[in-house]
Design a protein around this nucleic acid. Structure first.
Length: 466
RNA sequence: GCUCCCAUCGUCUAGAGGCCUAGGACACAGCCCUCUCAAGGCUGGUACGAGGGUUCGAAUCCCUCUGGGAGCGCCA
């Protein structure tokens, strides 16, 4: 059994979006699971649309996700000599031939077929050879078998049979001398000794042609696994307004890479009823046999839930740099690692994303610019001013500034007044956080520190007395 | 139009002939917990696209239909 070799082969013509990431993930997981090699190959033969920026976006995205390649990135544009070599050889062996049809001629053929309600395809008119046509630079076509059938033994779909009669002779070299996609894929998968081709099922229809070309090279095709498509939340094709944005946008929105990967893995793959997986669990459990055949729609709410589950389970120290990055994006700097860690622990069960966490934690690092109007009207009243004042004195007198002692103060204040904790806690909460929502008040004050707490209480008392 | 693929709650899915009066998760509703918001716990509603077979028995196997998708390019 040869070592497993998988490849992720994006084309840098657009963005690396959710669909591409899921494909990359499955390739990566499969290689990891079997101690194999994961190859990154950039398919940039479309010189018109490929851009260095798009390449960089792919590289950055993969790096953020932690989907590191064991080999590559390879670039198809750097392999043109090899492609030409194969084409020359095929031409010599009769496996390929020159086609002198002009684009106009092909267009006419196509329209006629469409008019006859036939599947548009090349009719092979140059197959037997044709004299050079003046003014036309020929393309090279692969001589596809005309008889028999090709069976794709797909690891997720099972056997899928295509009649060779349905396939035409595809162009492998354009008139400008550049090789085409389907051909490059074949040469690359052959040269790179790819054992498992895991890709989107929009490629299922290309597979028989690729298999025929692989056989023309004298090898048996690799194992194919065609993954179902990922749809937008409304069940239609992914578009810009859905998730078809760069994966890096998910970092900005405050998602953990492992959470995004967990979510994506569960789109089309499952392991019983388990929903939350660490990367380690996924690599240990992943199997193509458990991959679904049907397309699935992304559900942003579930992604958010999974993200929160990861926020709650991941060691806080690992979250700290992510939170710091989000805070900096809000223009909030400072705070020691240990302070941020305490914030993470206080906020993780009340934040679905790191962005939310940063926004909700702003007040820990800077005094609220203004009180939430509604909250202030309700809790910073003349009568609560007296209560706030008492709390302030009691807190100032506390020997140790820690949560349980702070809780003791709040509780005795409430007991003394004969009312619930909320009556004491809410005004304090508004005073320190600026609004009526925060982590438990004792924990909040403990993180904030005595000095800052007292200062904010002072200010709130003044406000309440106005 | 032709070829190919797909089809269980709104969504993600479990289900490989009897364990299914269909299980879990997200979302939703109610209750509990409770200093706010959450988290957590409990409860509830909603699904096998339709029709034919095969079988003692079908969500599971076969056929047809319907619906969705992909491909059919000197794009990838």
């Amino acid at each position: 059994m040869p070592t497993v070799r998988t490849r992720f082969a994006p084309s840098p013509t657009g963005l690396l979006h959710i669909g591409g990431v899921r494909t990359a993930l499955f390739c990566w997981l499969y290689a990891r699971r079997h101690g194999g090699t994961f190859i990154l190959r950039v398919e940039d033969t479309d010189r018109e649309r490929s851009t260095p920026e798009a390449v960089q976006v792919i590289l950055d995205g993969m790096a953020w996700l932690g989907l590191h390649a064991d080999e590559g990135p390879y670039y198809q544009t750097k392999r043109y000599d090899r492609y030409r070599e194969v084409i020359r050889q095929w031409l010599a062996e009769g496996k390929a031939y020159h086609c002198w049809c002009s684009k106009e001629e092909l267009e006419t053929m196509r329209n006629a077929q469409l008019a006859r309600k036939e599947k548009p395809r090349y009719d092979g008119r140059c197959r037997a050879g044709r004299d050079p046509v003046p003014g036309v630079t020929p393309v090279v076509r692969f001589r596809n078998p005309q008889e028999g059938a090709v069976v794709v033994a797909d690891a997720v779909h099972g056997d899928v049979t295509f009649q060779n009669a349905e396939l035409d002779d595809l162009i492998i070299e354009r008139s400008d001398g550049n090789p085409t996609y389907n051909f490059c894929v074949v040469v690359d998968d052959y040269d790179m000794k790819v054992t498992h081709v895991i890709r989107g099922d929009d490629h299922l229809n290309n597979t028989p042609r690729q298999m025929n070309m692989l056989r023309a090279m004298g090898v048996e095709p690799p194992v194919y696994a065609h993954l179902p498509m990922i749809l937008g939340p409304d069940g239609t094709k992914l578009s810009k307004r859905h998730g078809a944005v760069s994966v890096l946008a998910y970092r900005e929105e405050g998602y953990l890479p492992e959470a995004l990967l967990n979510y994506l893995a569960r789109l089309g793959w499952s392991h019983g009823d388990q929903e939350i997986f660490t990367l380690e669990e996924m690599t240990a459990l992943f199997d193509i046999a458990d991959v679904n055949k049907s397309a699935s729609a992304i559900n942003p709410e579930k992604l958010a839930w999974i993200n929160q589950q990861h926020l709650m389970r991941t060691p806080p120290a690992r979250i700290v740099p992510e939170l710091r990055w989000q805070l900096e994006r809000l223009g909030v700097t400072g705070g020691s690692d240990s302070a941020l860690e305490a914030v993470v622990i206080a906020q993780r069960e009340r934040s679905q994303t790191l962005k939310e966490m940063a926004e909700a934690s702003r007040f820990f690092f800077e005094a609220p610019a203004a009180y939430d109007e509604k909250a202030a009207r309700k809790h910073l009243t003349a009568e609560s001013a007296a209560l706030l004042d008492q709390s302030k004195s009691a807190l100032a007198a506390l020997p140790d500034w820690e949560a349980s002692a702070i809780h003791g103060v709040i509780r005795s204040q409430a007991e003394a007044g004969g009312f619930g904790l909320g009556r004491v806690a809410q005004p304090i909460r508004v005073a320190v956080a600026g609004g009526s929502v925060s982590p438990p008040i004792d924990q909040t004050l403990a993180i904030l520190g005595r000095q800052e707490t007292l200062a904010r209480l002072e200010k709130a008392i003044a406000h309440a007395k106005r």
